[in-house]
Design a binder for these strands. Structure first.
Lengths: 199, 199
RNA sequence: UGACACCAGGUAUU
DNA sequence: AATACCTGGTGTCA
């Protein structure tokens, strides 16, 4: 199972959501030009990463879900495998590809079991890194800067909220993402190279 | 079949073993007052646990065996069933009740198919737990601490050796214990509550 | 020192 | 297929 890039936004358009003014719930923006948070499409992103050996072969799994006001649920799954990477890189990448698939600004809720990912924003780690020029609290270079920068760029157009979920605790979507991630990690036939990983 | 507590040591006394000096094999202590390891009564303990569901209804089976110098074999069986417990708790409890039935310090050889039980001593897991204040190597609280403490207390007066036997591999006593354990697990009429189990 | 994740291995119970 | 338990390790941060 390879990556499925280019999340088809037309599916969402078909759900009758492109024109905010037409929304039946009345939340369509009267403001017009300005994008209000309440007027954005609400999307849920679940992701998980795995790595066999750490470092070793790895993969990510991501679910992007949009529930239309009509009640219809639109969902897309993503996954990729890599020949040599780390658990944390896969946790980040799963989130990144989900965000990068969005073609318009959205209100996104990201669910991840990785405190490495979630706390970077919810505990303001990134703010400290930027202040120190990508140095961590020990003044060492922050790891995986390539992915962190890519994540910040992918996040930028959206209103993103990060929620930590405990891993392997019965969370259905998290476990689906785990299955996608491990399946990709376990399939050498589809492995790509994680060019950013410095082994 | 309920538990049979209070292993009658008088049976062993009748085997002519109380006076070490009289032992025909010459290992009786000339030292007199001091209890030497070689002077202790040698007992063999077999035990096994089972649990239907894990967690679920479970039970243990235990055989305590003493072979008198005369060649006579004295044996006692123990078993109990519980309404909700785990496989590992039953493996521990089977050993505990056997040891607790001994009324004098003995040289005990414990045979179990549970590496959870055997390695706790033979691989010095307990030493690490005590050093870390009942935390395991991952710094999480050690599970079943109630039973581990009870086992340490039950073991304390004796010279205990643990031997691992492969389960379901034709070991006669192990399979007898398995039969006792599963019979107890499968008989709801005699089930007790495993008060220490946190479900 | 703490937290989360990712494994690798082993035994048993189902 | 899954749970109950343990050992050993790395990837990362505060």
């Amino acid at each position: 199972m390879g990556a499925q890039h280019g999340f088809s936004f037309s599916e969402f358009s078909q759900a009758g959501f492109v024109s905010d003014a037409a929304r039946p719930d009345g939340r369509g923006g009267a403001a017009g030009a300005r994008i209000e948070e309440g007027s954005l499409m609400e999307v849920t992103l679940y992701s998980d990463g795995s790595s066999r050996g750490n470092p070793g072969p790895g993969g990510y799994g991501t679910i992007l879900r949009y529930k239309a006001p009509s009640g219809a649920v639109h969902e897309k799954e993503f996954s990729e495998g890599f020949s040599c990477t780390t658990n944390n890189r896969m946790e980040l990448l799963g989130c990144i590809v989900g965000l990068e698939a969005l073609r318009r600004p959205c209100t996104v809720t990201v669910y991840s079991d990785s405190q490495y990912l979630v706390n970077a924003f919810n505990q303001n780690w990134v703010a400290g890194w930027l202040k120190r020029g990508w140095k961590n609290a020990q003044k060492q270079p922050v790891k995986n800067v390539d992915l962190w920068k890519r994540l910040l760029a992918a996040k930028e157009p959206h209103a993103v909220t990060f929620v930590w979920v405990k891993g392997h605790a019965g969370h259905a979507e998290n476990e689906r993402c785990d299955a996608l991630a491990t399946a990709a990690a376990d399939n050498p036939a589809c492995h790509k190279e994680d060019a950013g990983f410095k082994g």
